[in-house]
Design a protein around this nucleic acid. Structure first.
Lengths: 139, 139
DNA sequence: TTAGGTGCAAACGGTTTGCAGGCCT
DNA sequence: AGGCCTGCAAACCGTTTGCACCTAA
């Protein structure tokens, strides 16, 4: 918590109830769109504006306290960084979201670095596709 | 070409100059946003509307003639399916787009199927990260 | 002939921005 | 006191939709 305040201050910014609340909301919610974060924060800070949520999500992401990934084709979802890093599997048919340990793709990360000179950002990675059960149902 | 017309007709749709032009534009451009496709098509079909481009991209994707991926955080980009399947690496710093052969991640595809019961859609996959050169420049 | 397709303009949803205060430090 | 932050409302941008006309089959 003081750790949080330190990071904020060291970056020349200020601590506000809104900022603190946005971070807590993201941590509490797991995966949430800016809109959902806004709704969650509004429970304790009634008048908070959506733009403040957007501005704070941006700041928190710059400070590495929060991350976002594109889970639907529409809105991004933000999640805590305090949890372990992971990437997402999204089923296009049933919408299921699965979190996967980065270890599964470690060999690919190495390959991309070696063969393509590219360092992937696994925390942002989202893989679309189908659950086995949904894939069968489709055909 | 007749192959294209057949697919269209078999799905109970009609062939129009706009539709044909949109497909050709996507094939010609490689990776393009709806807006870029519109600009390209407008070179030969001056009055074409943006909504017609959107509607046709959707139809062409349904018919499997075109695919899209999310290369920027903003607009999707469409590409031909006639080329070999591939996925994308995007450098957040310099914006470079690299196409990668699916073979590189074949082992992961197998692992996801086995361990998570999930069949990834590789053609839609986009991996964000940094070029090695950009990663060095950043620190 | 008739249903699908088109252009136009308006609506939409998510996000950003300009501005006049407000409050952290 | 000074400057970052906030709320509000309007602007933005990509995309979708309703409608009347057109045209492929």
């Amino acid at each position: 918590m003081t750790d949080f305040a330190d990071k904020i201050h060291r970056s020349g910014r200020r601590m506000t109830p809104q900022r603190q609340s946005v971070l807590q909301a993201v941590n509490r919610l797991g995966h949430a769109t800016p809109d959902a974060v806004h709704a969650e924060v509004a429970k304790e800070l009634e008048g908070i504006s959506l733009s403040t949520v957007y501005r704070n999500l941006e700041v928190l992401e710059q400070l590495g306290l929060v991350r976002h990934a594109h889970i639907s084709d529409r809105a991004p979802t933000y999640h805590s960084v305090s949890g372990h890093e992971h990437f997402h599997l999204i089923c296009r048919r049933c919408g299921r979201v699965d979190s996967v340990d980065p270890e599964v793709i470690a060999p690919v990360v190495t390959a991309l670095e070696g063969e393509h000179g590219f360092v992937p950002d696994i925390g942002h990675l989202t893989v679309f596709g189908h659950c086995i059960s949904c894939a069968e149902a489709d055909s």
